[in-house]
C-alpha cells in the first residue's frame, strides 16, 4: 500500500472522485463517473507526479444493476497498481468515452468489452464484434446471459443475487432483443 499515492491522487483528482480511495495489498482504487474518464486519465497519464504510462488492462463489468469499465494502470512513481473504476453505466444503454485517443492500444480491449458486455465506447472508430460472429446479437458476459450447459455449477449455485439459474427463457430473450448501433 502506497500512502503517498493516496494523498497525491486526492490532491489532483479530489473533485472528480465519486467514492473514497481504497487501498488493499498492492492495489489502489479510485472511482469516477464515466463522463470524467478522459480528463482523469489525462491527468493520470500526463501529471509528472503520477505518470501512469502503461494501460495494463481494460475490463467491462456487469454488476447486475449497472455496468462498469475498469482500468488497471502502472506507473514508475508508485509500487501500487492503480485501478480506475468508471461506474454507474446504465445497463439499458451503457456508454463510456473511448480511450483510444490516449492509448490507441485500448481499441481491441474496448471492442472486446463491447462484444462481451455491449458497452459502447464513443469515439472508438472500429467498434465491431471481435470474437463472436458479426450477426450475433447477444452479449455473453452479461449476468442475465444464461449458460445452458452449466455442469460446472458448484454448491454455491443459485446463491448469487444477480443470476437467475432457473429462468433461462426470459433471460435469453431479454438479451437477444437488445440491439446496439455500433
Amino acid at each position: 500500500m502506497d500512502r503517498t499515492l493516496r494523498t497525491r491522487l486526492a490532491a489532483k483528482l479530489a473533485d472528480r472522485l465519486t467514492g473514497p480511495i481504497r487501498q488493499r495489498h498492492d492495489q489502489t482504487e479510485i472511482r469516477i463517473r464515466p463522463a470524467d474518464l478522459i480528463e482523469v486519465m489525462r491527468v493520470l497519464h500526463d501529471d509528472p507526479e503520477l505518470e501512469f504510462v502503461i494501460l495494463a488492462d481494460l475490463a467491462g463489468v456487469d454488476t447486475g444493476d449497472t455496468m462498469q469499465v475498469v482500468y488497471h494502470l502502472w506507473s514508475n512513481k508508485t509500487p501500487d497498481w492503480l485501478r480506475v473504476i468508471a461506474e454507474g453505466l446504465p445497463r439499458g444503454d451503457p456508454r463510456a468515452p473511448s480511450l483510444t485517443g490516449l492509448w490507441p492500444g485500448a481499441e481491441w480491449m474496448e471492442r472486446e468489452a463491447y462484444d462481451m458486455l455491449g458497452i459502447v465506447f464513443e469515439g472508438n472508430r472500429d467498434l465491431r464484434r471481435i470474437y463472436m460472429p458479426p450477426d450475433y446479437k447477444s452479449f455473453p458476459l452479461r449476468k442475465d446471459f444464461y449458460l445452458p450447459d452449466d455442469s460446472a455449477r458448484g454448491p454455491g449455485g443459485g446463491v448469487r443475487h444477480v443470476e437467475e439459474p432457473y429462468a433461462p427463457l426470459a433471460a435469453t430473450t431479454r438479451s437477444i432483443r437488445r440491439t446496439v448501433k455500433a
Binding site: H25, R83, G157
Partner: peptide
Amino acid sequence: RAWAAVESPRGLFGTYVISDGTDQPFRFR
C-alpha cells in the same frame, strides 16, 4: 476485488477477480 499480473513469456498476463462471497468469482477478467 483483486488484480494480479505476472510476466509471462509473452508479456504482462493479468487477471481481475470480483468476489461476491460465493464459491465462484462474480467476474473473472
